[in-house]
Design a binder for these strands. Structure first.
Lengths: 116, 116
DNA sequence: TTTCAATACCTTGCAACACAAAGTATCTAA
DNA sequence: TTAGATACTTTGTGTTGCAAGGTATTGAAA
């Protein structure tokens, strides 16, 4: 119980700052609404909850990285379909670079440990 | 000026939760004091400042992941040499797993975007 | 002796982030 | 009209990285 919480916490902390990257990446392919995005993240083994993703989408929209339109749902209330903007695409590029740098940095540190 | 700040912010956010991993990884190889760790991170292209690393080392020591001893310096005040504990090594293993999972998740999301 | 610079460590206040939990609104079917 | 499912929102909490400033020790210069 406790050990799992520690693991979950590690994963949660590592996720910070990466979720925005994931969302932009997903939306760079096709527009989607929150549930679809949540499902994609789940499929990729990145468990996230509603309370995390909604504020994040609003934040990115306020930054001009995303826009949205309402669409009727076959069942239930209307859905908010988000799509990425030009500015969002630019930021996605920067995030790609940042992510690659981070991976490279970790590699360097781990390789040193391997004895190089 | 502004654009660089945005990039820096992206990198800073992505670093969250990863720095602890880096420090444990560095200390799993050899004991070291703050300046050495800072230099190693700098060599790996992960720029971090003093104000970040000192509280972090204290935190990890309070969690029992690290221990330390004082050592005289050839010039200036004594140095606090940290080394990793058994508990720290255990957590490092978990962090290795978490990191690999995160990398894998991002790959999955990006590959979907490539059209698979 | 006093003063200065370099080294090393520590603290405070802040903004961003992920999350749990609870709340609001819409639609359908019983 | 009531119950359930869907969809979106808000509030409060704890953690993190960072900028900025502070404290303490040492050796050498004035």
């Amino acid at each position: 119980m406790k050990a799992d919480n520690i693991s979950d916490n590690i994963r949660s902390q590592m996720r910070k700052g990466v979720l925005e990257y994931c969302i932009l990446s997903i939306l760079s392919r096709k527009e989607a609404y929150a549930s679809t995005i949540l499902q994609e993240l789940k499929d990729a083994n990145m468990l996230v909850v509603e309370g995390t993703i909604y504020p994040l989408l609003i934040r990115q929209k306020n930054q001009g990285l995303l826009s949205y339109r309402w669409e009727e749902s076959p069942q239930g209330p209307p859905r908010k379909y988000y799509c990425i903007t030009d500015k969002g695409l630019e930021q996605l590029k920067e995030m790609d670079a940042s992510w690659n740098e981070l991976v490279s940095s970790i590699e360097t540190i781990k390789n040193k440990n391997a004895g190089i």
